[in-house]
């Protein structure tokens, strides 16, 4: 299996001195889905954002298919178009209809004609089961629908790896299912993905590998079975606190 993404000794200190990530390293293989779990403030979202440099890591390397991407000279716009990202709060473009949200990147980054871009957009919309709402404004969609459009927007760019930043955290419980189903579908199709999530059950079912982060470091990682048989005290404690909440 080919190595798609590798992160080596990543550090991030925020202005103000919070040392959020303290030496994180991991690799993501072709077709693998990696779930990053951990309590709030453990640095998992920071790691994800450092991967496509929405946040600049203070130290460390990020490589996409072996190519170093966190140097000042890397073509960051090209890199980002190869990495799909889905946000916790959807971040759909409120002034554009669903279909235009999706064609925006295709037309202005991939330089496709409007017609061509719309054909592509319809395909991905079908994939996330949102074809019937293609002319709606995001403001008129439910949370789950919004998130599926956001997934479609990232998918349309045909990314080499997808990053999900707590994709279900902002959703009502009854809406979560449809989004998770969509993500699961992607995983089954062999999409390489990194999912930051609080959905332990989802991580267990879908992820090939689980990374547990605590206080800025990788505290434990391994196949999804570690959720059922945690090796470290910290992960045990974390899992039990979550099951108490449930």
């Amino acid at each position: 299996m080919k190595n798609v993404l590798s992160i080596v000794d990543m550090h991030k200190t925020y202005p103000g001195g919070v040392h959020a990530v303290r030496g994180v390293s991991f690799d993501v293989m072709e077709g693998e889905s990696v779930a990053i779990i951990g309590s709030s403030g453990s640095g998992k979202s920071t790691v994800l954002r450092c991967i496509n440099r929405l946040i600049e890591p203070t130290k460390g390397e990020v490589r996409l298919r072996g190519e170093m991407i966190n140097t000042p000279n890397a073509d960051i716009n090209d890199v980002r178009s190869r990495i799909g990202m889905v946000f916790q709060s959807f971040e759909l473009f409120a002034h554009l209809r669903v279909i235009d949200n999706i064609t925006l990147g295709l037309r202005h980054v991939r330089k496709m004609s409007r017609k061509h871009a719309e054909r592509e957009a319809l395909q991905v919309l079908e994939k996330v089961d949102m074809l019937d709402r293609k002319d709606a404004f995001p403001g008129n969609l439910s949370g789950g629908q919004k998130q599926r459009v956001a997934i479609a927007r990232a998918l349309a760019m045909k990314p080499e790896v997808m990053l999900f930043d707590e994709p279900t955290s902002a959703l009502d419980p009854e809406l979560i299912g449809s989004v998770l189903k969509t993500i699961r579908g992607l995983a089954d199709e062999g999409m390489t993905m990194v999912v930051v999530t609080h959905e332990i059950s989802f991580a267990r079912e879908v992820a090939d590998r689980v990374i547990y982060m605590d206080r800025g470091v990788v505290a434990e990682s391994g196949p999804s079975s570690i959720i059922d048989s945690p090796q470290t005290e910290r992960l045990k404690k974390f899992l039990s606190s979550i099951s108490e909440e449930d």
Binding site: R82, M85, E91, R153
Partner: peptide
């Protein structure tokens, strides 16, 4: 405008001015 909009735009590969 929420900063996430800028992040979302940049994450699909648009440059700053776009």
């Amino acid at each position: 405008i929420p900063s996430g909009q800028m992040e979302a735009g940049r994450s699909i590969g648009l440059n700053y001015m776009q």
